[in-house]
């Protein structure tokens, strides 16, 4: 019982970080109808940026979020402008998907060239510190990673609900055509949206580097988990992806504790297959929107 509750706590804390990554990915899908396969690579890229900032300049990993997030926001916008916007063809959706796949591999290639493929980890002085609450271990890094994710998600929520840009985004998600007719600049919304997606990946990446050992190939692992989360939550639904991330975080952590860590990977695949069989639009997905 104790182990189970411990696993659930761990799962919720980890799930929060996944929620952050997945919210960006589902946002990009909502706006552009593109499944961004490079989201995992963005996370790993941000983790390496944080690593460099920490090792070379001694910047605290949590503080470096303030650097990596705006930086990746700009990188995301640049990539959208350079690689996704010029696509004009019969099947933009398919091409965009493959472009993000290429992007993913390209990022992996650059990272393995610059940093080599050995596993690294960001180890600040407080890395192994943890509290004991009612007999359960809560690691400081995981706790603050969770808090950080909540803060960034709250900011994202406020941006989407309270700003003019946010209204344009929500309008585009609901009905791109009408949004454009009402004067929403689709190009700008797409660019900013892709930037926001990359930015969430960046803030998650900074803490990801402290929670896990990673190498340039880690993005495969990440993307398969993220895809499960966004499909489970319903593609395009940010709230859904947050719930799904917490569910999957707990599920995989419990399986990992009760069975074996190998099976925790399979939890994701099995859930994905079940969702697609039983409820292809996910928990909170709109019925006809998007690809399904």
């Amino acid at each position: 019982m104790h182990a189970l509750i411990q696993a659930i706590i761990l799962g919720i804390l980890t799930g929060g970080v996944y929620a952050l990554m997945a919210s960006g990915q589902t946002l990009i899908f909502g706006i552009m109808k593109v499944v961004n396969l490079a989201q995992g690579a963005f996370v790993v890229l941000a983790a390496y940026l944080t690593y460099t900032l920490f090792v070379q300049f001694g910047v605290d990993p949590f503080a470096s979020v303030l650097i990596t997030t705006p930086l990746m926001f700009l990188v995301g916008m640049g990539l959208q402008w350079a690689l996704l916007r010029p696509l004009h063809s019969d099947d933009v959706a398919q091409l965009s998907l493959l472009v993000t796949f290429a992007l993913e591999l390209g990022v992996e290639g650059i990272l393995s060239f610059t940093y080599s493929t050995t596993l690294t980890n960001i180890q600040p002085s407080y890395a192994n510190f943890s509290w004991t609450v009612f007999g359960f271990q809560v690691s400081l890094v995981r706790f603050f990673a969770f808090v950080l994710s909540l803060v960034v998600l709250a900011v994202l929520y406020l941006v989407l609900k309270r700003t003019k840009f946010g209204r344009a985004v929500r309008a585009t998600v609901q009905n791109p055509m009408s949004a454009q007719l009402l004067g929403v600049n689709a190009q700008r919304v797409s660019a900013l949206g892709f930037g926001l997606g990359a930015a969430t990946a960046a803030s998650a990446g900074s803490v990801f580097g402290m929670l896990n050992a990673f190498n340039p190939g880690s993005h495969y692992d990440l993307i398969s988990r993220l895809l499960t989360v966004v499909v489970l939550g319903g593609l395009g639904s940010i709230g859904g992806s947050v719930v799904a991330a917490l569910v999957m975080g707990v599920a995989s952590s419990v399986v990992s504790a009760e069975a074996s860590p190998i099976w925790s990977d399979f939890t994701f695949f099995i859930v994905l297959l079940l969702v697609l069989l039983l409820r292809p639009r996910g928990l909170f997905g709109a019925r006809t929107r998007g690809a399904l």
Partner: peptide, 24 residues
């Protein structure tokens, strides 16, 4: 049969997952 219940993007997701399963 499972994968082709979905279209374009989601089909790509499912098939790439098959790849990851095979690798694992």
């Amino acid at each position: 049969w499972v994968a082709m219940r979905t279209r374009a993007d989601v089909f790509a997701i499912v098939t790439i997952t098959v790849l990851f399963i095979a690798q694992t």
